[in-house]
Design a protein around this nucleic acid. Structure first.
Length: 498
RNA sequence: GCAUCUUUAGCUCAGCUGGUAGAGCAACUGACUCUUAAUCAGUGGGUCCGGGGUUCGAGUCCCCGAAGAUGUACCA
């Protein structure tokens, strides 16, 4: 960014400060209290003679000649500084006069109430800890009846994403979203840990990618002179760990999918996947429902959320429904008994675009997605997916056309995906080879055949349940944000050419 | 990807049927020893998102492009 009038003036101040023999970026600081600490027990602190040293960012200045007020903020709170030449002496006060809103300072003195009754630090010494040379956007705040009214709010959405540090600094409600995200993720870890799961880390750079239908990012390793893929899912590696004898594993981490970006998609996003030996689809429903309810009720503290224009209730017992029945209720079509030709005709009639190489299973999913999914507002486990589009899931007992799989739908969107995992190595090979044929026919999101994974299965894998939850979307719901960019600190943005 | 809207000072915004750019805050100078959106007086500050075009004249009209938002299609 080019130098502007502001940075030029502040660099001149910097030179003046240095000419006074003061280092504007000293190594040492000596904070005795966080601001939040001294905001408690105000009366007794004022009555006593306790000296405190506070440190933080100067966020506002009100100067009047040989007296001035500033607001000092750290991550625990904000307090007013009372700065007078009488207390500081001329030299130190002249340093204060060179300070700007945005500087980091250390202030030493006693706590007192001003004539206006505001709890403040009466400064006896101001030390500069870090000079600012680019002014912060001038947001002003007034407290009326305990509620904050902000003027000239830093509100430009694009700037908020591109300069997230300013958003966090100037918009406390956005900082709270990320604090809550952090608590949600750590609570999810504790929830899994307390159920005997161990957290693992598997490769992000993979020689083959798999575990989902998606196009990958490709990168290159110089020393190996080989192409690698950024993972699109962790499924196949976690299953290898179950083969290796771990019975309960989970991973929370980034996946990368080389696809479009919009309100609910970022190219890199966070998933939690878990696998549990000797469990199955029902076990996964209990796990997912228990986890999300715990996060809502115990961490966020409520069970009703407004999301994407809908009011969603997470309390109560969640509905478990069958995809073919849902489709039948919505369209009258019995997708299990109707012929593929009938389904094609139905899709054509409703102008649903049929992807290349779609067989019956894909048609059923297509019809479901258009006529059912977006209408499912309250949490619903949609079971009985077509087996054909579930290449890593076991067949449903008693119905070879269906998979023992569910997706959790809330407010018309997918929040989790789970199966009774396929552990028959020969069946798995057939399914992946069928996927490879789809690829050959032009479906570039179909799975690839991972021989190393198939070999692992051949050594034997116990029956198990596995699930994946999209963490970003869960945080969107739990923080009531309709855009994924609001819950990712640094969302992917196109280069800014201006 | 397509459609619509937005882009003007550091921030938030105004700018009419085309006439040569404004406000508040921030900044700077001065006054001010209990202010708190401090106040008062004064001053400076612009690639009007970028590039073309029409016109005597374009922030404004037309075309191309960029970024963002929203809707829509596909993927979590």
């Amino acid at each position: 960014m080019a130098e502007n009038q502001f940075t030029k003036l502040r660099k001149e101040k910097l030179a003046k400060i240095r000419a006074m023999g003061i280092d504007p970026y000293p190594v040492e600081s000596a904070r005795s209290h966080k601001i939040g600490e001294v905001l408690c027990d105000k009366e007794s602190r004022v009555a006593g003679t306790e000296r405190v040293i506070l440190a933080g960012r100067l966020v506002a200045m009100r100067r009047q000649g040989k007296l001035g007020f500033g607001n000092l903020e750290d991550d625990s709170g904000k307090i007013q500084l009372y700065v007078s030449q009488n207390e500081l002496g001329e030299d130190n006060y002249s340093l204060f006069k060179l300070c700007d809103a945005g500087d980091f300072v250390q202030a030493e003195g006693n706590l007192f109430f001003t004539q206006a009754g505001e709890y403040s630090l009466k400064c006896e010494r101001i030390t500069l800890l870090g000079k600012n040379i680019r002014p912060l956007p001038a947001v002003k705040e007034k407290i009326v009846d305990g509620k904050s009214i902000r003027y000239d709010e830093f509100a430009d959405i694009e700037l908020r994403y591109r300069k997230r540090y300013l958003d966090l600094l100037l918009n406390p409600e956005h900082r709270k979203v990320f604090e809550l995200r952090s608590r949600i993720v750590s609570a999810a870890r504790r929830y899994m840990d307390s159920r005997g799961y161990i957290e693992v880390e598997t490769p992000i750079l993979q020689p083959l990618y798999g575990g989902a239908n998606a196009r990958p990012f490709i990168t290159h390793h110089n020393t190996l002179d080989t192409y690698l893929y950024l993972r699109i899912a962790v499924e196949l590696y976690l299953k290898r760990l179950i083969v290796g004898g771990f019975e309960r594993v989970y991973e929370i981490g980034k996946n990368f999918r080389n696809e479009g970006m919009d309100r609910t998609h970022n190219p890199e996003f966070t998933m939690m996947e878990s696998y549990e030996a000797y469990s199955d689809l029902n076990g996964m429903m209990d796990l997912v429902e228990g986890l999300i309810k715990h996060l809502a009720l115990d961490i966020v503290g409520k069970d009703t959320f407004v999301y994407q224009g809908h009011t969603v209730h997470l309390g109560g017992s969640w509905r478990r429904a069958s995809m073919p029945e849902l489709v039948k209720d919505a369209t009258g079509l019995d997708v299990l008994t109707e012929s593929e030709e009938t389904l094609v005709a139905f899709c054509n009639k409703h102008e649903l675009e049929i992807p290349q190489g779609s067989a019956k299973g894909k048609l059923i999913a297509l019809i479901y997605e258009h006529f059912v999914e977006e209408k499912l507002i309250e949490p619903t486990f949609v079971c009985d997916f077509p087996k054909e589009i579930s290449p890593l899931a076991k067949a449903k007992p008693g119905n070879p056309l269906l998979a023992d799989r569910f997706e959790l739908i809330i407010a018309g969107g997918e929040f989790a995906n789970a199966f009774s995992e396929l552990n028959d190595p020969l069946d798995q090979r057939e399914r992946l080879e069928a996927q490879a044929k789809l690829r050959a026919m032009g479906d570039d999101e179909a799975n690839v055949v991972d021989e190393d994974f198939l070999e692992a299965l051949e050594y034997g894998m116990p029956p198990m349940g596995g699930q994946g939850i999209g963490i970003d979307r869960l945080v969107m719901l739990l923080t009531e944000n309709d855009s994924i960019k609001e819950v990712i600190l640094f969302p992917q943005m196109k280069p800014d050419h201006n």
